[in-house]
Amino acid sequence: MTSSSITRVKLKQIAEKIEKAKRLDGRGLNDYREIKIEQGVIEKAEGSARVLLGKTEVLVGTKVETGAPFPDTPNNGVLTVNAELVPLASPDFEPGPPDENSIELARIVDRGIRESEAIDTEKLCIEPGKRVFVVFVDVYVLNHDGNLIDASALAAVAALMNTKMPNYEVKDDELIIKQGYTPLPIKSHPITVTLGKIKDKLIVDPWLEEEQAIDARLTMAFNNEGNICAIQKGCPGYFTQQQIIEGMKLAQKKAAELRKKLKW
């Protein structure tokens, strides 16, 4: 993410610290900031979660509606992820249609959920080829303090775990919504880990100021079995082949740690 609010002196400080394996906020290179997850914060949404990753705050709400399936997957429900970089979250966010940063964010979150097969979409089918449940995942960034990807991905999965779908029955081609709800069928809990590269060192969970100092960013999502299900490299920098493998191992370790802590 681009911003002009950081001085060159600060950038240099960040880089010099990291060369000595230290960070300005006192963390080790491989440490996450404190993570807080709160589920069910929006009553009108079918599911919701608020995640605090240090000072980064993301709210995700899910809505479940009925709609038509895609023609090539007539037996599967539909997942739609959207992200809003709300202007109140940062002086760098502007109102208006989603820019490339918010589209990229939404698509990374989407890929993690979709490719890990987190939602059992076959169970979202009402009538094959005609009617399925559509799950809308809306990522709302409330405070930008770096690493929106991990915070959003965590919040999205937490919100899906908290999502309920209406009970229904089909009578004479008509859909009747009944009383009560069933939980959304969840198969996997992907965990997304983002690394930054600075002075050839990898850091976990870069915060806002570090994000402006890093050369490149690497995001990896892991499923329950510890396999990789989505990757996105970002920022105009590069990784060597060795750094990618090193990063993959580090990210895998961090994902396993997080999974244990969250009991997902």
């Binding site: 490719e115 890990s116 499923n223 396999n227 990789i228 996105q232 082949q241």
Partner: peptide
């Protein structure tokens, strides 16, 4: 430069 400048993935792979 032995530099990877784009890396993406979707699907499922073991390390």
């Amino acid at each position: 430069l032995n530099a990877v400048t784009l890396l993406q993935m979707d699907g499922q792979l073991t390390p």
